[in-house]
């Protein structure tokens, strides 16, 4: 430790008046103690020695983000419109005897209506399952 710098004697006197300990170790002892203790604390890598995996991470991450954004743009904005744009009845099967079947499309609401006339069923409480 350099003790002959300008102003050092005044600093040492002030430290002594305040009761602060004046470092007495020399440079070699200091660095030995430093080397012995530095494993206790995590050390940052020296400047200029970036981790070799960082560029790969950036490349893969950027590629992934770009792919996801492209997929999202396609999914939300460029997907082809569905074939059937409005509500519709495509097919029907009616088991009981019945009369006329009408399929209506309300032009205002685009609702689709399947209406069966003279449907021969009785709306009574059905028997429990397993019984005829």
């Amino acid at each position: 430790m350099k003790r002959n710098r300008k102003g050092w004697p005044e600093i040492r006197e002030q430290l002594a008046r305040r009761g602060s300990a004046v470092p007495q170790t020399d440079a070699r002892q200091f660095w030995e103690a430093f080397e012995a203790r530095r494993h206790i604390y995590p050390q940052h890598p020296p400047a200029g020695r970036a981790s070799p995996r960082a560029p790969w991470l950036w490349a893969i991450g950027s590629l992934g983000v770009t792919s996801l954004l492209a997929a999202a743009v396609w999914f939300f904005f460029l997907q082809p419109a569905p074939v059937q744009a409005h509500a519709a009845i495509h097919s029907y099967e009616i088991a009981p005897e019945h009369g006329t079947v009408m399929i209506l499309q309300d032009e205002t609401s685009r609702a689709a209506i399947l209406w069966v006339t003279n449907l021969e069923i009785s709306e009574t409480t059905p028997p429990p399952e397993g019984q005829p």
Binding site: Q84, A87, I89, H90, E93, A112, L114
Partner: peptide
Amino acid sequence: ILRTVATVRRDQPV
């Protein structure tokens, strides 16, 4: 009784 295949849309009831 009935079996049908339909397209149902939001605000467009079947």
